[in-house]
Design a protein around this nucleic acid. Sequence first.
DNA 1: GGGCATGGTATCATTCCTGACACTATAGGC
DNA 2: GCCTATAGTGTCAGGAATGATACCATGCCC
Lengths: 118, 118
Amino acid sequence: MPRIRHTTLTCSPGCTVEATLELFGGKWKALILYHLFEDGVLRFSEFRRRMPNVTQRMLTNQLRELEADGLISRTVFPEVPPRVEYELTDLGKTLKPVIHALKEWGDKYAHSLKQKKE
Amino acid sequence: MPRIRHTTLTCSPGCTVEATLELFGGKWKALILYHLFEDGVLRFSEFRRRMPNVTQRMLTNQLRELEADGLISRTVFPEVPPRVEYELTDLGKTLKPVIHALKEWGDKYAHSLKQKKE
DNA sequence: GGGCATGGTATCATTCCTGACACTATAGGC
DNA sequence: GCCTATAGTGTCAGGAATGATACCATGCCC
């Protein structure tokens, strides 16, 4: 995934494609967004249950980056044990058609992909 | 981008999202596809003109991977100087709504993204 | 016979991403 | 006093992704 920050959008006429992709090019970001679209609000531990293969550190990282990009909000409740809720911002919600398109395609065509070599 | 091959699709219920993303998670793949949707058929040198920031090696790599995934076709004409044409396969063409969604979103919202720190 | 154009390869270095693992604070319950 | 749960953080290391640079073959044109 694209882990590069295009600071200018002049690289190419279609560059906004890349700009968009950078937002959730992180390894698990699209999945995080997808689950938020499904469930609305999720706690850290709920993400962990839904994505058992992601390490705690990665999950934190990806959530923080999404938050920094203004796509999700993070609300800490001053309780013990701590509770933190994540939810889409208004900007984040606008990504719905994009994530939806990704999932639609995957559901339809993922099986028809050529087998990758191990 | 996600540069990881999920070989199984069991990582999560929404995993096809990630599976789709892996196809064009490469740094320039979405841009390549975008240009192919715009122009239909493109030669290697035409890609280079449209994406001047991409090194020759990267461009070759990304094209080869898209080809290996069955999304684009590569036709070599036995001429001198050589001519090679790239074009979307039928499978590649099904990605149109996805790329389109990415570009739509980018055009609308890229400007509203928080400024990245350098 | 030198230079040009095309579509690449090969090699090397570096940077970045990701994972593994250990560790933390707090309050409640036993 | 010890254990539990939650939501993390810190450090380290390995590997993958990317970039820079140089190089190649062929036929045409001058």
